[in-house]
Each structure stands twice: as C-alpha cells, then as structure tokens.
Design a protein around this nucleic acid. Structure first.
Length: 196
DNA sequence: CCGGCGATTGTCT
DNA sequence: GACAATCGCCGGC
C-alpha cells in the first residue's frame, strides 16, 4: 500500500512507485503510466532549482501533496511532491489510462482510454491552481492510491530523457510505459477497476 | 517596470 | 512541420 513514506526520497528514486498507481479527483480516475522526476537544487530543469518562490512553494512541502502549476499560460499540470520538507522535489504526471465507467465498449466493458501529455492529464482530472498543495493522502476529492488498489508494473517500464526542457537534458528521469494499454492484461485492468 | 520564455497542445499547411 | 494561444516568473535595466 503506497503511503507518504514511499515518497519521502528524491523524486528520481521514488518516481516508479507511481507507475500503475491511481490518482483521482472527485469522480475522475487515472492509472498513472508516464512520469517525470524533478529534483531541487541538484536539478537545473526543476522549478525548485533556484529555491522556493510563490509558485513552487508546495514542492518544498511534505511528500504526498499535489503541486499544480500553469504551463504556457494555458495548461494546469499536476505533480506529486516528494522528499523531505525543505527539499524541493516532485513527480510530473505525463500520462495514464483513463477509466470511464459510464461508457461501455462494444463488448460491454468500461471504456479505458490513453491520456498522453501533462496538459491533457490536468484537464482530464479537472486540476485547478487552487488545488496546489492539497494532500493526496486522506483528502476528500484528490486521492492517490498505489499497490493493492492499483496495477503492478514491476520492471515493465522504460527510462528516458525528460520532454520539452532545455536544461539538464541528459537526466534520464522519465519513467513510463511504452505502450500502456498493452502493458496490462484485460484481467489486470478490470481487477484495478473493480478496486476503485 | 519591462520583456523573453517555458515541465504544452491544437490547428493549419 | 510550423506556429499561435496565453500568462506568470524571473532576470535585467
């Protein structure tokens, strides 16, 4: 069972714990399949690199809270904060599997679609800037659930360079599933779904 | 105080 | 493949 203590380390060391985990807001549910780690003073590409500001303050807070920022003035991107208080770190959610319980496919199963890109993730989950800093463990609307209520990824993930950055482009801190729908069997997906 | 630019994406060619 | 949309941050003056 994923809890706050799993996220107490550096973002790049704990990011894979989020693969296969479930993040939800109100009635929207996402199985996380694509993540990027952002550090603190050790990571020039991180919002936290130059210290705490009004925008990135939650990155320096306790692990397991949400960090929401406005990207290109348009998109609301969500992160899971990691590491100890006072140390900046967060894991950007870049993509996942969206479960739409109300919509059934031609075989009567809940429709599962791929969400790709941090802007689309924020949009799907209805993230707002006012959600910045909310606790993902024990909160009402936002929740993060791993292992036991989520899918087991094991070693079936890939590592690569982070997308869209101009600094620290050689940090292999992206952790993702190449083909998320094919990574899990239908049995696994339905199991995870029934645990929601 | 001003201006360039970004952890992006939808649209048009 | 190129580019506009859109706004807060941060560096520079």
């Amino acid at each position: 069972m994923l809890d706050r203590s799993y996220l107490a380390g550096p973002a790049n060391e704990v990011a894979t714990y989020l693969l296969g985990a479930v993040i939800r807001n109100s009635n929207q549910t996402l199985i996380i399949t694509d993540t990027e780690a952002y550090g603190g003073f050790d990571d020039p590409a991180s919002h936290a690199f130059k210290g705490a500001t009004n925008r990135n303050r939650s990155m320096f807070g306790q692990a397991g809270v949400l960090y929401v920022y406005l990207s290109y003035g348009i998109h609301r991107c969500i992160n899971v904060v990691t590491d100890s208080e006072g140390i900046g770190g967060a894991i950007l959610i870049r993509g996942g599997l969206a479960i739409t319980k109300n919509e059934l496919d031609s075989l009567g199963r809940p429709r599962i679609s791929v969400i790709s890109g941090p802007g689309r993730v924020g949009k799907y989950l209805g993230a707002e800037l006012s959600d910045d800093g909310v606790d993902l463990f024990g909160g009402l609307n936002w929740q993060l659930r791993g292992n036991g209520s989520s899918l087991s990824v094991g070693s079936r993930f890939s590592t690569g360079m982070r997308i869209g950055i101009s600094k620290a482009t050689d940090f292999p801190w992206r952790y993702y599933l190449e083909d998320p729908l094919d990574t899990f069997s239908e049995q696994e997906l339905l199991f995870a779904l029934n645990r929601q």
